[in-house]
């Protein structure tokens, strides 16, 4: 069973639909039940909205410990705010995260510009190239520098750069995928990234770390 963790923040249908699409035989459950998260073989931790609200809702549903445990001992995929919450702390509302990955989450600056001097907008929204920094089963079949769909105003800064599995540029390079043992987490949205995103999700459903 694959548990998609639901803590009441927005739409998780697209995540569960995409997983069902690539793994039609999988038993995918969108759940806020900590015991189901503990029983699952794999866990997907999505997220959208503001991180302070996400952390509050996670605690309110008693999911805090279950998520930390799952991130330590079974195939675990964090997506967007789901990645950000794994870190120690975020600048968004100066919020403490789960502390599964050492490091911080920072906001893009307000005065970003590209090489031509044109203003870059925040949120960073749209399709950007992802450079794979390590060989990893979740990158299998995905060409180098494939574009994935992003929408975010904050980005992670892992304390240990060896955990960076992928980077993107806006305009400075930032970590957009982090990996460690059974854990893989991405800032982009694989469920909205067409064929490449579906491939990453399919790789996750077959992954044996």
């Amino acid at each position: 069973m694959i548990a998609v963790i639901d803590y009441g923040m927005g739409n998780l249908r697209s995540v569960s639909k995409a997983i069902e699409h690539v793994a039609p035989k999988a038993d995918v459950r969108v759940t806020d039940d900590p015991s189901l998260v503990r029983a699952a073989e794999r866990v997907v931790f999505p997220g959208q909205g503001a991180m302070p609200d996400c952390m509050r809702e996670l605690r309110a549903r008693g999911l805090y410990e279950a998520v930390i445990d799952a991130a330590r001992d079974k195939p675990f995929l964090g997506i967007c705010i789901g990645l950000q919450m794994l870190f120690d702390r975020s600048e968004e509302g100066d919020t403490a995260g789960l502390g599964v990955i050492a490091g911080h989450v920072r906001r893009f600056a307000h005065d970003l510009a590209d090489a031509q001097g044109h203003k870059l907008k925040v949120p960073h929204m749209g399709w950007n190239e992802v450079e794979q920094r390590i060989a990893h089963p979740l990158w299998a079949g995905i060409a180098p520098n494939t574009r994935f769909y992003f929408v975010h105003s904050y980005y992670p800064v892992p304390a240990d750069h060896a955990l960076t599995a992928g980077v993107a540029r806006y305009p400075a390079q930032f970590t957009c995928a982090a990996a460690r043992e059974n854990l893989f987490a991405v800032q982009f949205h694989p469920e909205k990234s067409a064929a490449a995103g579906l491939r990453l999700l399919a790789n996750f459903t077959a992954w044996t770390p």
Binding site: G126, W127, Y170, P171
Partner: peptide, 8 residues
């Protein structure tokens, strides 16, 4: 290379 312009 960076963020692509979108066509919708």
């Amino acid at each position: 290379m960076s963020l692509a312009k979108r066509i919708i």
